[in-house]
Amino acid sequence: MKKKVFALLVLAAFFLSHDMYLKLDTFFLEPNTSATIQLFNGTFDKSENVIDRDRMIDASLLGNGERFKVAENQWSEKDSITFLNFKTGEAATWVAGVSTKPRNIEMDAEAFNGYLRHDGVLDMLKWREENDALDKDAVEKYSKHVKAIFQVGDKTSEDWKTALGYPIEFIPLSNPYEKHTGDQLEVKLLFGGKPLANQLVYANYKVTENHHSHSEEEHGHSHEGSAHSHEDEAHSHEDAKAHTHNEEVHSHDNGEKHSHSHKKEEAGHTHSHDGGEPHSHEEEEHKDDHVHTDGQQLRTDVNGVVSVDLSTDGIYYLRTIHLAHSDEEGLTHESNWATLTFEVVHGHSHEEDTHAHAHAEEDEFPTYIFWIGSLLIIGGLFWWFNKKKE
C-alpha cells in the first residue's frame, strides 16, 4: 500500500513541470530609469523557486545594437522569485535573455508519460504509444532558454530580431511593438541556429487591467456587464489562479518542494488553468489526461514559423519543449525549453485622433458664431432702445 501511494505521489509530482519566464509588470518603460525584470520558474502566474546564478550560462540585455552581460550584483531574490535589477538605456526595443546549464532527471515510465501529456509534448507521447514504449523509464537532460522583448520610450529599433545564440529560441519576424490588438505576429523558432519545423508551440496571454479585445468587438460583445467579460467569467484570465502549487513535490528543476493547492468553490472542489474552464477533482481524480496546454496550440511550418493571434490587449507568452531521443551515455532523452514574452496594446495613431477631432468639430455648431451672433443681437437691441428714447 505504501509503495502504491509513493508511486502516485511521484506521478503527481511530475504532472507539474517548471516552465521559465522573464516577466515585467509593464513592458513599456521610460528611458534611463530603474526597472526590474522577474524570472519565474514554475508557471506564468506563480514562481516555485529561485534560479541560482551558477545555473545561468548567459544573462543578457540587448538594446540599440549593443549586448550587455548582466552582472552578479544586478540579481536579487524574494520568496520564490528571482529579480533582475537594471537601468534602462536610450529609447529602443530591448531584449532580455537567460539560458541555463543542462541538468539530468530520472523518471519512471508512468511519471514520464504523465509529464509528456501534461506539458503537451505530444509527438514523443505518440511515438511511445506507437512503438510500445509506454513502459520504458527515462533519464532526461534538460535546459531552459527564455527571452522577453520590451519597449523603452517611443523609438523602436531592430534589436528584437537579433538571435542570442541559445540552443533554442523564438525570434519574431516583425517588431511586437509595431503590432496592435487584432493583428497577427509571425514568430520563427530556431534550434541549433536553424529553423525548427513541425514543432508544437503553445501561445497564451494574461489580460492587462484595461484590455481591449477585437474578437469581442467583432461579435458585438461588451467589455462591461457582458456575460462574456474576462473580468466576470469563472474562467477569467485575471482571476483564474485557482491552480497554484503549494503542496506536491516536483523535481523538474532542482528537486525543491512546491505546492499544488486548489481553489475551493461553494459547491465542490474545482480549479481552472490560465483561463480554462473550471472542472472538478471529483470528476478528474486519478485521471491521467490532465493537461496544462491552454491557449493557442500551434505547429511550426517548414520554415519554423508560427502565426500568433493577438486578439486581446495583454502580456503574451509562447512556450515549447523540444524533446528528442539521446544517444549520450546514461541518457534516454534530451530536452530544450524555450519561452518568449512581450506585451500588446490597442493602437490609436495621432492621425486617427486628429481626424476624429476634426470630424467632431465639423459636426458641432461653431462656438465663435454663437458669440458673434449674441453680440450683434445685444448691440442691435441697445441701439433700438437708445433710438426710441430720442
Rank of each mutant, 00 (worst) to 15 (best):
M1Q: 09
V5I: 15
V5T: 11
V10P: 00
L16W: 14
T26C: 05
F27E: 07
L29E: 08
E30S: 12
T33L: 05
S34G: 05
T36K: 10
Q38P: 01
F40P: 04
F40K: 02
D45F: 13
K46H: 13
S47P: 06
I57Y: 07
I57S: 09
L61T: 06
V70A: 09
A71E: 15
A71M: 11
E72T: 12
W75S: 04
S76E: 08
D79S: 09
I81N: 00
I81L: 06
N85H: 14
G89M: 05
G89D: 07
E90K: 12
W94P: 01
A96S: 05
T100N: 03
I105T: 12
E106I: 11
M107Q: 08
D119I: 03
W127Y: 15
L134M: 13
K136F: 11
D137C: 06
E140S: 07
K141P: 00
S143D: 10
H145V: 09
V146A: 03
V146K: 00
K147C: 07
I149R: 02
K155D: 05
W160S: 02
K161E: 11
Y166C: 01
P167V: 07
I168D: 00
P172V: 08
L173H: 05
L173G: 06
L185C: 06
E186S: 14
G193F: 12
G193Q: 06
K194G: 03
K194N: 11
K194L: 13
P195I: 07
N198C: 02
V201S: 01
A203V: 10
T208L: 11
H212Q: 06
E217S: 08
E218A: 14
H221Y: 14
S222L: 13
H223Q: 04
H223L: 09
A227T: 11
A227M: 13
S229N: 02
E231N: 01
D232S: 12
S236F: 07
A242L: 12
E247N: 08
V249W: 14
S251M: 09
D253T: 13
N254A: 14
E256T: 11
E256C: 04
E256G: 12
E265C: 03
A267F: 15
T270V: 11
S272K: 04
S272W: 06
E277K: 13
P278N: 05
P278S: 04
K287P: 00
D294G: 09
D301K: 02
V305E: 02
V306R: 01
L310F: 05
I315G: 00
I315Y: 01
R319I: 07
T320P: 03
H322N: 10
L323M: 10
L323V: 11
A324D: 06
S326K: 00
E329A: 14
N336W: 10
A338N: 02
T341K: 01
F342K: 02
T354P: 00
A356D: 15
A358N: 05
E361T: 08
E362W: 12
P366Y: 03
Y368L: 05
I372Y: 08
G373M: 11
S374P: 00
L381G: 00
F382V: 14
F382P: 00
N386A: 09
K387G: 01
